[in-house]
């Protein structure tokens, strides 16, 4: 269950740290040169998990957000239950539950640890973001609803042409923050055995403990480098949502 306790399977990885005693925790160029290519192998997995969870998470946010606003009481309460359960428990528990407990409960396999990870992250953040979707739609001025009704628009037209364009603008800054949160949470998939950056880092650490500082610093730098575009995007989204809006 705890991958950290297990002996590492350095399987296909052939790394030689013959000169390792020279480093003794000191960060050297040659140590970085050894570690860098090994960590690069994990970037692809991290990015895959990230993009899949972003797409699924945002879709989930809109689906759940609209369902909570629907007139159907069963749909509304069911979505409310989903949102409260996923916001009330922690992501790591949900991840372990989806990966270890769910297959046991219903005798079915979720497919792979990739889907368990993506589902856990997207359902968790989808629940948080659905509240943003709901809140933004509700905070569009009432007059807009009334005006579009007066113009004889259908319910669907009202939402698509009048309400949503104004609501999405309010959602953007918060959505940007959740991008970075999702990136951070992708590191959890290493706990269910996916070979992401952190997992590669753990392998390197197990191979040579004295290099741990270099390894984890590089892992942190990798995550930071991946976060930088997202931070930039968040700032852009914030600027966009402020543009042309009268401040009261």
């Amino acid at each position: 269950m705890t991958p950290k306790g297990q002996a590492p399977s350095t399987g296909g990885l052939t790394l030689s740290f013959n000169e390792s005693n020279k480093y003794k925790g000191v960060i050297t160029i040659s140590a970085i040169a050894d570690i860098f290519p090994a960590l690069i192998q994990g970037v692809e997995v991290t990015l895959k998990v990230l993009f899949a969870s972003i797409i699924l998470g945002y879709s989930m946010a809109f689906i759940a957000g609209f369902c909570r606003l629907s007139n159907n009481i069963i749909l509304r309460s069911f979505t409310g239950f989903y949102v409260e359960v996923f916001r009330g428990t922690s992501l790591i528990v949900q991840l372990f539950w989806l990966f270890y407990a769910l297959p046991m409960l219903f005798n079915f396999d979720i497919g792979s640890n990739f889907w368990a990870g993506v589902l856990a992250i997207s359902l968790n953040y989808g629940a948080y973001m659905s509240e943003i979707v709901r809140g933004s739609i509700l905070s569009v001025a009432k007059g807009q609803h009334e005006a579009s009704t007066a113009l004889n628009m259908t319910r669907f037209q009202r939402m698509r042409l009048v309400i949503l364009p104004q609501a999405v603008r309010m959602m953007l800054p918060e959505f940007g923050n959740y991008l970075i949160l999702m990136l951070k949470s992708t590191s959890l998939v290493s706990l269910i055995g996916m070979h992401d950056i952190l997992y590669q880092g753990d392998l390197l650490r197990d191979a040579n403990l004295s290099q741990a500082p270099t390894v984890y610093l590089l892992v942190l730098v990798f995550y930071f480098l991946m976060a930088l575009p997202l931070i930039w995007l968040t700032k852009k989204m914030e600027a966009f949502s402020k543009k042309g809006v009268a401040t009261q």
């Binding site: 590191s187 952190l198 650490r205 290099q211 741990a212 942190l220 930088l228 997202l230 931070i231």
Partner: peptide, 20 residues
């Protein structure tokens, strides 16, 4: 803020004792 807390925990637990 933008790096995972999990990695930071591992850094403190596994790597910090090795820092000269």
């Amino acid at each position: 803020r933008s790096t995972p807390p999990l990695v930071q925990l591992f850094f403190l637990y596994f790597a910090w004792p090795m820092v000269p």
